[in-house]
Design a protein around this nucleic acid. Structure first.
Length: 936
RNA sequence: GGGGGAGUGGCGGAACUGGCAGACGCGCAUGACUUAGGAUCAUGUCUCUUGCGAGGUGAGGGUUCGAGUCCCUCCUUCCCCA
């Protein structure tokens, strides 16, 4: 009896050994190529969940693979430790946010170590540590001094419940996503970063290997549009500036619309209209932005009583307010061209406003009659009714690429009533938070009201610890006198800023702090940065597409322009490394993993109607299966009623179900020929669909079906959990957790264990053909697994490892493998496994008598010659369908292949003496069989 | 409403630049071994057909010698944004 695989006996031992030996410590070594891997750092919420494992362990496997390929790999970890949950815990459980946070970090750090990742813990960063946030504040100061950080009054999302401003992404349907309480729009003076400064550069992804959807999302988020700004005047000479992407249709503007919040509304509204306007404004404030901008919604509005003058043709046009115009987009005012804009069209129809055609559609012989139109015309065509630009052509392109738009812009400029303009949907980054547990903004307000940044030698502005959390919902900083009261640089009394920073500020630069977490002369050590930067591989969730992933790009560009990388660049040059463009972007390559959804959902409930009704169907001692007539999916807890069975489905085979009744008795139910009813799924249901249906239900994020990784590690060991997470899903997609699938991985690792410990086949006489065959399989595995890691395709990497296991077993069975050949094969298999299952690979490597550590070995060298098959199947296709095969040499010549194909039985039969129309030879490319397609 | 994914066996998923669809695994079936099996081993497992063979990647069309892969229309879903 050989020793059984017991992860508990080996994993903690190796983890300790690696830590003692500092095996994964990353050190600058200019003689080796560097590889800097970062995976998004977690928020210390309390417990590690399976999602953390899913994000981190495949990234670790790939980092390990790069290490074995000879790269000097750095893979650090840290905690994004500021944030609201800590403060909520403080209020709810009377525990200080710092205490709560650091207890969670300690716990999560221990849990993470059980993953067996190659994290270099010496580089750990915690964003709430003063030695970290000193530099967050330093960056803020840099931005402030450069004019990139400023204060302004703006309409912001204010949560009365949480007593803070919220970012747009924290507001869902007008409610705070956490508490579900309403969020109101409020004018407040807040700190902003000039996010819009780098819009055009952020739209350039040319040097980024990032997923296409992320680039598209960021592009849309920035929302660049080209057009013009045009000045209208009211009859009282008040100026109203509008932004439009279609200045060419200006001659068709028959009214104007202001957002209800537009500052001019109160001023221009006439006495007669005042009541209606005010009522409308009050009503509009209740609707969310989503509702307001929905195209499905019926357009509503009110006339202000005022008129404006169309600057290009002098027409007198009414000014309306309507909630489909947003104060936050463009200038909060539009010229309405009902002919060319669908929303304006609907509005004009509803309120009987005139529609003037200004574009004769391409191909149309006459100008459309507005009375006959059912929708706006936004397509290409020739301009009409448009004064000086009549006859110019609008080709449907944006901005000046359309001749009509170009002509309109030129006319506006010449007349001095407008100018070409670009508009962005992106707004400046609001970084103020009225919360305690965040990085203090390092400024003071002088008694004069002037703002002064705290001098560098006084950084960090420490977050006071002995504050009192009153249940007012306010940040304790706002009433904590020792913090509030301070002096300015001249020693005069001053008041300290009580807002803290958005935590996205902290996480925008952590990849730089990892370089030297204890460095105190600058945010990072140029000697480290010159070697490691930029980040080579970044992994994390796609949900950060328009937030963190955009903020950190902005941050890097700002640091570059502020000269923060200058010392680093100098060091790079000393080492002969070209710094050009290296600091334009923080992370060269990005990959997103999906999400692991919830686990087994209990309470899937069936109602069984037996074929033969007895008083006690499936009674307490019944061994006989009940034959079902009808099976219905019902809500959990449904009472069975007379003669029926109701209960939870616990097991299923092809035609039988096991149902556990409320009294705990499990009844087998024969489902052969039973009618199966799944509500909401019409048509023919069967037992398999039943199971599928229950699984679909399970995916819903309903009940607390949390998968606890600690329990999985306890049960299976870290290697198995790692491998299963990599194997069970397409990493980029994720999916629902299936606790049963782990069996395959358990078997695989156990098999490998047994195969390696069994040693070389005894008394085997080496058979060169058998050994050659094994060698071929091994090299095919090297190729396949390497390619899988290269493209982050972890599931196929594991499949390749399992196939190799199958091949080794087959080789033993077939026999003819000598001890030397066997050792080479086993050794290679362990090397290929090392990135995925680092512990068991290390253990077996040691037991083979190989030197410590398997993780310091080189990745096996792939030899295409050794992987090549001697003979392959020539696939013979008829009209594109495979019909036959002939064994041929891999490098068979075209003529020879065609001849062989035409000689096959299938082809002769199909041709029936006739001639083929065409014979096409497809050469066998890399690892592929040659093919011949015969067209009949 | 706009944008982006995705639809392949009972399930998770493979399929490189268009070239043998269903790798690998789960589950299931049959058999072996066993006091026992939710262990292990062997074999099988897309569908129809006794076989020969034929069909098959959400639906319909198209391009091509050849389409899961490219194009068009539609359907269903998930995500992001408004």
């Amino acid at each position: 009896m050989t020793e059984r695989y017991n992860p508990k006996a080996i994993e903690p031992r190796w983890q300790q050994q690696w830590e003692d030996d500092k095996l994964y410590r990353a050190q600058v070594d200019w003689t080796k190529p560097k590889h800097y891997v970062v995976t998004m750092l977690p928020y210390p919420s309390g417990d590690l969940h399976i999602g953390h494992w899913f994000a981190m362990t495949p990234s670790d496997a790939r980092a390990r693979w790069m290490r074995m390929r000879g790269y000097n790999v750095m893979f650090p970890m840290g905690f994004d430790a500021f944030g609201l949950p800590a403060e909520n815990a403080a209020v709810q459980r009377n525990i200080h946010p710092a205490k709560w946070t650091y207890a969670n970090i300690a716990r999560m750090r221990t849990q993470m170590k059980s993953m067996g990742n190659m994290f270099d813990w010496e580089r750990e960063v915690i964003s709430s540590d003063p030695k970290y946030y000193k530099w967050t504040q330093w960056f803020f100061k840099k931005f402030f001094e450069a004019g990139l950080a400023y204060r302004k009054e703006a309409l912001v999302n204010w949560s009365p419940t949480l007593q803070t401003v919220l970012a747009n992404e924290q507001v869902i349907d007008g409610r705070d996503e956490r508490t579900g309480q309403p969020v109101i729009q409020k004018m407040m003076t807040q700190w902003f970063f000039r996010y819009t400064k780098y819009t055009d550069e952020m739209l350039d992804f040319s040097r980024l290997d990032w997923p296409e959807p992320i680039k598209i999302m960021q592009t849309n988020w920035i929302g660049k549009s080209e057009g013009a700004r045009v000045i209208f005047h009211t009859e009282d000479e008040d100026e109203i500036e509008i932004y439009t992407t279609r200045p060419d249709t200006l001659w068709g503007a028959t009214f104007m619309v202001l957002a209800p919040e537009h500052p001019l509304v109160a001023q221009i509204t006439t006495a007669e209209q005042r009541e209606a306007v005010e009522a409308y404004i009050a009503n509009a404030a209740k609707a969310t932005e989503i509702e307001r901008s929905s195209d499905d919604r019926e357009k509503t509005g009110v006339w202000t009583g005022a008129y404006a003058v169309n600057p290009v043709n002098g027409e007198r046009i009414p000014i309306w307010i309507a909630d489909y115009v947003m104060i936050t987009y463009g200038t909060g005012a539009i010229m309405a061209v009902p002919y060319g804009d669908q929303r304006d069209f609907e509005f004009a129809r509803k309120y009987n406003l005139p529609i003037v055609p200004v574009v004769q559609p391409e191909g149309a012989t006459e100008i459309p009659d507005p009375a006959q139109m059912t929708e706006a015309y936004a397509g290409a065509g020739t301009m009409v009714n448009s004064g000086p630009i009549n006859g110019t052509y609008h080709n449907g392109e944006k901005g000046r690429r359309s001749p009509a738009i170009a002509a309109a812009i030129d006319t506006l400029s010449a007349q001095g009533v407008g100018r070409e303009a670009v508009n962005y949907r992106l707004r400046d980054w609001l970084i103020s938070r009225q919360r305690y547990w965040g990085c203090p903004i390092p400024v003071v307000y002088k008694s004069s009201g002037e703002i002064e940044a705290v001098p560098d030698d006084q950084l960090p502005v420490l977050l006071p610890e002995d504050v009192d959390f009153k249940p007012t919902g306010q940040s304790p900083l706002t009433y904590y006198e020792p913090f509030l009261k301070t002096v300015d640089s001249e020693g005069n009394p001053a008041r300290r800023e009580t807002d803290t920073m958005d935590t996205f500020m902290c996480s925008s630069w952590y990849q730089y702090r990892y370089l030297s977490p204890d460095y105190d002369k600058a945010p990072f050590d140029p000697e480290e940065a010159a070697y490691w930067l930029p980040v080579d591989v970044y992994t994390g969730g796609a949900e950060h597409a328009t937030m963190h992933l955009l903020y950190t790009r902005w941050f890097t560009k700002a640091l570059r322009d502020l000269g923060v990388f200058d010392d680093t660049i100098a060091v790079m040059r000393e080492h002969g490394r070209n710094p050009d463009a290296l600091f334009d972007e923080p992370m060269d390559l990005l990959r997103n993993q999906g999400q692991v959804l919830g686990g087994e959902r209990m309470g899937d409930y069936l109602l069984i109607e037996p074929k033969v009704t007895t008083s006690f169907p499936g009674g307490s001692n019944s061994q006989e299966p009940v034959t079902a007539r009808k099976i219905t999916v019902v809500p959990p807890g449904t009472k069975p009623g007379f003669g029926k069975i109701a209960g939870e489905l616990t097991r299923r085979s092809e035609h039988a179900l096991w149902v556990r009744q409320l009294n705990g008795v499990v009844v087998p139910v024969s489902a052969k020929n039973a009618e199966i009813v799944i509500p909401d799924i019409p048509g023919e249901n069967d037992v398999n669909q039943l199971k599928q249906h229950l699984e679909i239900q399970r995916m819903s994020k309903s009940k607390g079906n949390v998968v606890n990784p600690d329990e999985l590690v306890e049960q299976y060991g870290a290697d198995t959990v790692r491998a299963y997470l990599m194997f069970a899903f397409d990493w980029t997609k994720g999916g629902p957790w299936d606790p049963n699938g782990v069996t395959g991985v358990v078997r695989w690792i156990n098999d490998v264990w047994d195969i390696v410990l069994a040693g070389a086949p005894k008394d085997a006489t080496a058979d060169p053909a058998a050994e050659r065959n094994l060698e071929r399989k091994v090299h095919q595995a090297i190729d396949r697994i390497s390619a899988s890691f290269e493209k982050f395709s972890f599931n196929t990497a594991i499949a390749g490892l399992m196939t190799l296991r199958n091949d080794l077993r087959a080789a033993i069975k077939e026999g003819g493998i000598g001890a030397d050949a066997w050792r080479v094969a086993v050794r290679t298999m362990l090397l290929l496994m090392a990135p995925v299952t680092p512990h068991v690979a290390e253990e077996l490597w040691a037991r083979l008598g190989e030197g410590y550590s398997v993780h310091n070995q080189s990745w096996p060298q792939y030899d295409p010659e050794k992987a090549a098959e001697d003979e392959v199947a020539l696939v013979v296709m008829i009209n594109g369908k495979p019909r036959d095969k002939v064994m041929v040499a891999l490098d068979i010549a075209e003529d020879e292949a065609k001849k062989l194909a035409l000689a096959t039985d299938s082809v002769k039969r199909q041709l029936n003496g006739g001639q083929p129309q065409k014979v096409i030879f497809i050469a066998g490319r890399k690892g592929q069989e040659p093919k011949v397609n015969i067209v009949i």
